Measured scan of single mutants.
Amino acid sequence: MQYKLVINGKTLKGETTTKAVDAETAEKAFKQYANDNGVDGVWTYDDATKTFTVTE
């Protein structure tokens, strides 16, 4: 399945996608991506759209 990440950071904004077997695996990949880019915020997930959002 394909999952999307929407980033609403202080210095980084945008979107990225990943393919993963489940939401938990996608979340780990997205959190690593956010961490690598210095984004630390509040996470939400919408199962209907398979979209994670992180807001600083």
Rank of each mutant, 00 (worst) to 15 (best):
D46G: 02
N8E: 09
A29W: 15
I7M: 07
K13V: 09
T44I: 07
F30I: 02
K10F: 10
V54P: 00
W43N: 00
L5T: 01
T16Q: 09
G41L: 03
E15F: 13
Q32D: 09
G38T: 04
V42A: 09
G38M: 07
V21S: 10
V21G: 10
T25F: 07
D40R: 13
N35T: 13
G14T: 14
E24K: 12
K13N: 09
V21P: 15
T44M: 08
K13S: 11
T49V: 05
D40W: 12
Y45A: 00
D40K: 14
T53L: 05
V39P: 02
G38Q: 07
G38L: 06
T11F: 14
M1G: 12
T11H: 13
V6E: 05
G38R: 07
M1S: 12
A34K: 01
E15Q: 11
V54Q: 00
N35K: 15
A29I: 15
T25M: 12
Q32C: 06
A26Q: 01
K10G: 10
N37L: 15
T11A: 10
A26G: 02
A26V: 02
N37K: 13
N37D: 03
K13L: 08
T53W: 08
K19P: 06
A29V: 15
T44W: 08
A29T: 14
V6M: 07
G41N: 01
K50T: 04
D40Y: 14
K19Y: 15
V42H: 10
V42M: 11
A23P: 12
K4I: 13
K4A: 06
D47K: 07
G14Y: 15
G41F: 03
T55D: 08
L12K: 11
Y45T: 00
E27H: 11
L5I: 03
Y33F: 13
T51K: 04
D47Q: 11
V42E: 11
A29C: 11
D47Y: 07
T17P: 02
A34M: 07
Y45E: 00
L5W: 01
D40N: 14
G41V: 02
K50E: 03
A34F: 03
T16R: 12
E15Y: 12
E24N: 10
L5K: 01
I7D: 01
D22P: 01
T16F: 15
Q32K: 14
K28T: 08
A29Q: 13
F52V: 01
T17Y: 15
K19F: 15
Q2L: 15
K50N: 09
A34E: 01
D40A: 13
E27A: 11
T49Y: 05
E27K: 12
T55M: 07
E24Q: 13
T51R: 03
T25V: 09
D47E: 14
Y33K: 03
K4T: 15
E15A: 09
T16S: 09
K28Q: 10
E27P: 00
A20I: 03
N8D: 10
N37T: 07
L12S: 09
K19S: 13
A48V: 11
K19T: 15
Y45K: 01
G38Y: 05
K10I: 14
T25L: 07
G9K: 05
A23V: 13
N37R: 15
A34D: 00
T18K: 05
K28N: 07
L5Y: 01
D22F: 04
A29K: 10
Q32M: 09
F52C: 00
K31Y: 05
K31P: 00
W43Y: 02
T11V: 11
V6F: 06
A23N: 09
T18E: 05
T55L: 05
Y33L: 05
A29P: 01
V54D: 00
G14Q: 14
K31F: 05
K31C: 05
L5G: 02
G9Y: 06
Q32G: 07
A26D: 00
L12T: 09
E24L: 12
Y45G: 00
T18C: 13
V54C: 07
D40V: 14
G14A: 14
E15G: 10
L5R: 00
F30A: 01
G38W: 04
G38K: 08
A26K: 00
A23T: 09
V54M: 04
A26W: 01
A26P: 00
A29E: 12
A26M: 01
K50G: 05
N35I: 14
M1L: 13
D36P: 01
D40M: 13
V6N: 05
F30H: 02
I7R: 01
K50M: 10
T11Q: 10
W43A: 00
D22H: 04
A23H: 09
A23L: 12
K13C: 12
I7K: 00
A20H: 04
G9L: 15
T16D: 03
V6T: 05
L12V: 13
F52P: 00
A20Q: 05
Q32T: 08
Y3T: 01
M1K: 12
E24H: 12
Y33M: 05
T49G: 04
T25D: 08
L12E: 05
V21F: 12
I7C: 05
T17K: 07
V21N: 13
E24C: 12
A20M: 04
I7V: 09
T16I: 15
D22Q: 04
K31S: 04
K10C: 13
I7H: 03
K50F: 10
T55Y: 09
D40F: 14
V6Y: 07
K10M: 11
A34Y: 03
V54K: 00
F30P: 00
E27Y: 15
T44C: 08
Q2A: 08
V21Y: 12
G41E: 01
T53F: 10
K50L: 11
A34G: 03
K10D: 06
K4L: 09
D46Y: 04
T49K: 06
Q2Y: 14
G14C: 14
E56C: 06
K50Q: 09
T51C: 06
D40G: 08
K13F: 12
D40T: 13
K13Y: 12
V6R: 06
I7G: 02
K4Q: 07
K28D: 06
E27N: 05
K28C: 07
F52S: 00
A20K: 03
